[in-house]
């Protein structure tokens, strides 16, 4: 365990609790969302931080936000208790709503953009038990798929990276039968983590795997960015105070689960997040601590650092 060096605090000027914060692709813009129903956008340039915009439009606490890949523009998706997902876009410095997705009937708990290689596709998980996938089409319309995912409520979605083992084809042509499938994982109140894959033949999302392991609501799932990893890693955390790491050698094989640590966490685990490289997992726990985990050479997970509120 060691301490962290560089740390900068940013007063967000929110009027209520923050529920999510995310940097954009280049790490230049920060978006935060809060129970005060607003989203704030900051520009971050080294030491300088500037509040550029406060987005208002949700009628309830905003739970999660997600930046789209910059090649689609400065686009932010937000999900809220008001059962809406709003997609915001910046144009010439002005932010505006470009889409309000209100097909869900209960709080939308999570939003996530698909890897940019697939195009602008957004997945949302809602307490109405459904997961919806929005695809932005070239003609400016949105294609929305909504399907039952977790009976009582879906809590989280996370996309598989575009480059999963076995997804590449050689450049010089040949049979392009090795198709890359869009996949994402969702966690819900049925204590399950489910892996969904898009089936082109049926043009629908089908449940590929249903991972049992938690004994209480699954709060968050996170698919590791596949950088230098020999297999797919999926982390899930739950109300049952555990974090499970699921690994899969290729998209056909079974998932193996491993608990992050043998004992339970002191409190509910709220969120898991992978670093883009290095395979570090940040675990946020109800005891107000964030711990960083890394897999060692014996395939065990070790805590490498712990962050608390100063």
């Amino acid at each position: 365990m060691s301490t962290l060096y560089d740390q900068h605090a940013l007063e967000t000027q929110h009027e209520d609790m923050i529920h999510d914060a995310q940097l954009d692709y280049y790490g230049k813009k920060l978006a935060t969302c809060s129970s005060d129903r607003s989203i704030k956008i900051f520009e971050i340039d080294g030491e300088n931080r500037r509040l550029v915009e406060t987005l208002k439009g949700h009628e309830g606490p905003v739970w999660q936000i997600a930046w789209a890949h910059p090649k689609f523009g400065n686009i932010l998706a937000s999900s809220s208790y008001d059962s809406k997902v709003i997609i915001w876009k910046e144009q010439n410095g002005n932010w505006s709503k470009i889409k309000e997705h209100s097909m869900h009937t209960a709080s939308v708990n999570s939003v996530a953009w698909a890897p940019h290689d697939f195009g602008p596709i957004l997945a949302c998980a809602s307490s109405d038990g459904k997961v919806s996938v929005l695809t932005f089409k070239d003609d400016g319309t949105w294609d929305a798929r909504i399907f039952e995912a977790h009976g009582i409520g879906a809590n989280s979605v996370s996309w598989a990276p575009a480059t999963v083992p076995g997804s590449l084809v050689q450049v010089t042509g040949g049979a392009p039968n090795l198709k890359q499938s869009k996949r994402f994982a969702s966690g819900g109140c049925d204590n399950l983590v489910k892996v969904w894959a898009y089936r082109e033949e049926s043009d629908s999302w089908t449940e590929e795997d249903s991972l049992e392991g938690h004994s209480d609501w699954v709060r968050d799932v996170a698919w590791a960015p596949n950088i230098g990893l020999p297999k797919s890693y999926l982390a899930s955390c739950s109300q049952d105070k555990t974090v499970l790491i699921w690994t899969q050698d290729n998209s056909k094989s079974d998932w193996n689960k491993k608990s992050l640590q043998p004992e339970r966490f002191p409190d509910v685990v709220w969120r898991v997040s992978w670093s883009l490289s290095g395979n570090i997992l940040a675990v946020s726990c109800g005891d107000n601590k964030v711990s960083l985990w890394k897999e060692n050479l014996r395939d065990d997970w070790e805590i490498v650092s712990e962050l608390t509120d100063q």
Binding site: M17, I18, H19, D20, A21, Q22, L23, D24, Y25, Y26, G27, L30, T32, S35, P61, W63, Y81, A106, S107, N109, S127, I152, G153, N155, C189, W217, R219, V268, W270, R271, S273, W274, S275, L276, S277, I280, A282, V283, S284, C285, G286, N288, K289, V290, L292, L307, T308, D309
Partner: peptide, 25 residues
């Protein structure tokens, strides 16, 4: 069946920075 809100969280960003916020309750 709506999740208890996340009060403390951490998210990695692409450039290796970790965003953390903690419960102020």
């Amino acid at each position: 069946n709506v999740l208890f809100p996340i009060l403390c969280g951490a998210r990695f960003s692409g450039n290796g920075r970790l965003l953390c916020f903690f419960s102020c309750l």
